[in-house]
Simulated scan of single mutants.
Amino acid sequence: MTDTSTTDTAATKNGAFHYRPLGRDGLARRGEIVTPRGVIRTPAFMPVGTVATVKALYPEQVRDAGADILLGNTYHLMLRPGAERVAKLGGLHTFMRWEKPILTDSGGFQVMSLSKIRKITEEGALFQSHLDGSRHMLTPERSIEIQCLLGSDIQMQFDECIELPAERKEVERAMELSLRWAERSRNAFLAQRASGGAGPGQALFGIVQGGIDAELRRRSAEALVGMDLEGYAVGGLAVGEGHELMLATLDATLPFLPQEKPRYLMGVGTPLDLIEAVRRGIDMFDCVLPTRNGRHGLAYTWEGPVNLRNAVHADDSRPLDLQSTCPAAREYSRAYLHHLMRSGEYLGAMILSWINTVFYQELMAGMRAAIEDGRFEAWADETKARVVAPKTTT
C-alpha cells in the first residue's frame, strides 16, 4: 500500500510547527503536521510508548511499520526514570532511540485512573504513586516543565479527565477547571519558550472536555480556540460512554475547532472508531489496543480480527494474513502463533504486537490514499465490511 504524501526533508528542520492541509473528501481531512523532527502524515495513528517503549517492539520495527510519531506519558516518566534524569541523558528521543516526533500526554488521565489516592484542587492533583506509594503534586506548570525536560515535540495541557457516566454538574466543574489549567499550561509553555526550554518547533495542544454534553463541549472548544494553541484534542471519551455517544460528541464538537489546525482524538481506538472519526474530521489518534490485544492473542487482519488463543487454530497451517506487509503475518502459521500464545512464550506477544502495529499503520495509509483519491466513503464502507465484521473473530 503506497502513500503519496511528502516525507521528512531538510526543509522541515529548524522550522516552526504547522499544519499543512493537502485535501478533503467530505469532512475527512488529508494533511501533514510539519515539525523540525519530521513530517507527520495525517490521518495518523500514534503507537503508545508510555514509558519510552512500545511494548514488545524494537523502535526500528515501529518506524518500519510506518509510524511518524509516538506517544509518551508525563505521569509514568516523571515517576520512573524521572524527567530530570531523562533530560541529563539527552532527552526522550535520544533515551529511547526514536528520531521522529514524540507527543507526550500531560498525565491527567493517569492521575484519574491509576493513582491509589488523589485529591484534585485548584492548584493541581495531589496523588499517590501506583509504583511505591510516594506522594506527588502535579500542576499545569510542573506538567509542562516535565514535558519540556523530556523534549517532546507536541505537549498536552494538564486537564482533569473524569469517568463517564457522571452528573452534569461534575462534568461542568471538571471542564471549567481544565480550562483554567489550559490557560496556566499555555502561560507555562510560553515561559519555557521564552527561556529556551521549548523551541519554535514544539507545540502545545489544548484538550476539549465536557463529557457527552454538546453545550459543555462547545463552551470548552470556543474557550480553547480563543487561547490560539497549535492544535486541539478531544479528550474525555472512550471512558465508558460507548461508540455511538462518542461519535455524537465528535459531531457536536468538531464544528467549533479551526480547520487550519490539527485535531486529535485521545485514547481511541478500534478500527471502526478510527474510520468513523476520520469521516468526521479527526487527524490524530493514539491507543494501546494494537499492542495490548496482541499480547493477549488477538490479531488484526484484513479479513477481520483473529483470536489466536482459540483451539480452532491448533492445526491450521495457513499464514495469518497474506495481505499484510508485515513479514510475520505472511510467514508464520496460525498453528505456530496459537502454540506460542497458549504456551505463554514472549515471542507470541512480540509477533502479534508487530503484526497489529503494521496493520494500524496500513489502515491509516489506506485512509490517506482514499481521501486523496476522493473515494473515502466507498473505502470506509468496504473496509468496515472486511475488518470489522464479526464473522472472523474466531
Rank of each mutant, 00 (worst) to 15 (best):
R29D: 02
V312D: 11
A380C: 11
I351C: 03
A11R: 15
I120R: 12
R295N: 14
R180D: 04
A370M: 07
L274H: 08
R334H: 04
A203N: 07
A299H: 01
H338A: 06
E241K: 09
T121N: 02
D3K: 15
H76I: 00
L265W: 09
F359T: 02
L308Y: 00
L57Y: 03
R263P: 09
Q157L: 01
E215G: 03
S185F: 04
D321Q: 09
E123Y: 07
A223K: 08
P43Y: 01
G199F: 01
E362Y: 09
S185A: 06
R292F: 04
Q147E: 05
A203C: 10
R85F: 13
E230F: 02
M137D: 02
T394V: 07
E160K: 02
A203R: 09
A191S: 12
F158C: 11
Y300C: 05
S343A: 15
G72N: 11
I351W: 01
L149S: 01
A311R: 10
T393H: 07
R80M: 08
K55M: 10
L237S: 03
E362K: 13
R279Q: 10
R368Q: 07
R63D: 14
E377W: 02
T35M: 10
P390C: 07
R85D: 14
M46E: 15
M350I: 08
T94Y: 01
F189S: 00
G348T: 07
D321A: 05
A194T: 09
D159C: 05
A198C: 11
S343E: 15
M112N: 13
L289D: 12
P165Q: 06
A233E: 09
G91W: 06
G197R: 06
R63I: 12
L245P: 10
G240C: 12
E145P: 03
L131R: 03
R37H: 15
L57N: 01
